[in-house]
Design a protein around this nucleic acid. Structure first.
Lengths: 241, 241
DNA sequence: CGTAACATTGATTTCTGTCAATCCGAGTGG
DNA sequence: CCACTCGGATTGACAGAAATCAATGTTACG
């Protein structure tokens, strides 16, 4: 099932079998993309939306000097540019961070789906609002937290999201991106990210070895990050078999 | 018309007369709220959504110390908590910043409306995605701009948005909020906002006297802010009579 | 006229960026 | 097999931006 992880473990979300089947049928065959490939470029009219099945995808804005600000990180199960369906074109680039498997839906098909299935339409709407909730949390992260807090927040959020789709036990996970990518997400420089990571490692809060992230002291990290995963709407139970 | 400013001057948005009438009919009578009144508190189940007709409304998250981070500023015509319709409860507070006139729609009525009018549903979806686009721009502002850039960006965005609903000529407008509110929006302290505003005034880029904001040198401010209003989806023409 | 909220300014500290090396590991070609 | 390269990680020295702490002005208003 291409949609197996879509809205998986989300509170208050109940896609009926027929709704999920309809969405599944509208999706293209999965394709494999290499790392660092642009999926959507800003400003270009978009005619299909992309469901991420495996791998990591980022959404970027660039400043005058070409420095990037990550505005979203996507994990498997995320509809990375569903918002392009109503918006038609985007204000940012969508890029694979790792090798990634995706499937796409044409926008005309989405128009038909949403007209025929209002509840599915609302669930799709919901999924874009989850992205918006994450945006708000990122605003908080950048506006109110210092370096250590920002990194802790970013990593805690990522851990919880990966856990929801079975890619983490909540403590350790694979994050095959560079420290510069993390810096782009947290509004810091790669140099400072490196320093803060060392400090967090020295304090035995977490460890990053290559692509491997281990959150040793989740409570301390949550405290540092003032992290509360409410906004992710995760369900404790996993109805997926 | 309560909805006169809703999605006014937005590119690619065409609400038919019957769609607008249906929405208008679903809205309550306008009510006047005092300044600094909480409309929605975080975590509480929301059963209706609020259209802002006049005044300013902010959306806030709070950190451990009670310091606020503004995650959105709403101007007349904005559906300030439409996202609560699919989400059911919010991760932040919604508060009037000034005296404000609002009208509300019950969520059951929205369910009926969106099921009956898929295109209206998509336009409502669109309006929440505009908020998300602004969230992204705020992430950029906080992650990549310094103090002067952030203030310039905040004020340029506000000017353009107010202009779209006829409350500014693009150069000057009323913004009856405190420097602390601006600081909350820009991830700075009120002290620093004050200093940066003085610097911008000394450079003859802008002037704030009481509630009155005057952007003297729009080009310079746009440059400082790396501002490009694309993401606001504004239309040059105003189809409103 | 006194109070309270907001704005303004100065002195100092802290955090983060910048610039510049150096280190390390994986893949490459001789 | 081993020098070689290259991207990324790491570290140090220094500069600059913003926070913090602490007063002092200013204005509106009861």
């Amino acid at each position: 099932m291409k949609t197996a992880n879509f809205l998986r473990r989300r509170r208050g979300v109940e896609l009926t079998t027929s709704e999920r089947d309809a969405l599944e049928a509208a999706l293209s065959e999965p394709r494999l993309l290499p790392a660092r490939q642009t999926i959507v470029r800003r400003g270009v009219t978009v005619r299909e939306s992309t469901l991420l099945i495996a791998g990591l995808v980022g959404r970027y804005m660039e400043d005058r000097e070409g420095d990037r600000q990550l505005v979203a990180l996507h994990v498997p199960g995320d509809f990375v540019d569903l918002h392009a369906f109503p918006l038609q074109h985007l204000d940012h680039d969508v890029v694979t961070l790792t090798e990634a498997t995706i499937a796409t839906v044409d926008h005309p098909a989405l128009t038909a789906l949403t007209a025929a299935l209002p509840h599915l339409a609302r669930m799709l709407w919901f999924s874009t609002l989850l992205d918006a909730a994450m945006h708000r949390e990122w605003i908080f992260r950048l506006g109110r937290l210092d370096g250590p807090g920002r990194l802790a927040h970013f990593l805690c959020e990522t851990a919880v999201r990966l856990e929801a789709v079975g890619l983490s036990d909540g403590r350790s996970f694979l994050l095959p991106i560079t420290q510069s990518d993390i810096a782009d997400a947290c509004g810091l420089t790669n140099v400072h990210v490196n320093r803060v990571l060392r400090a967090l490692r020295d304090a035995r809060l977490l460890e990053i070895q290559g692509a491997n992230v281990a959150l040793h002291d989740r409570d301390a990290l949550w405290w540092l990050a003032e992290f509360d995963p409410q906004y992710l709407y995760h369900d404790d139970r996993d109805p997926t078999p």
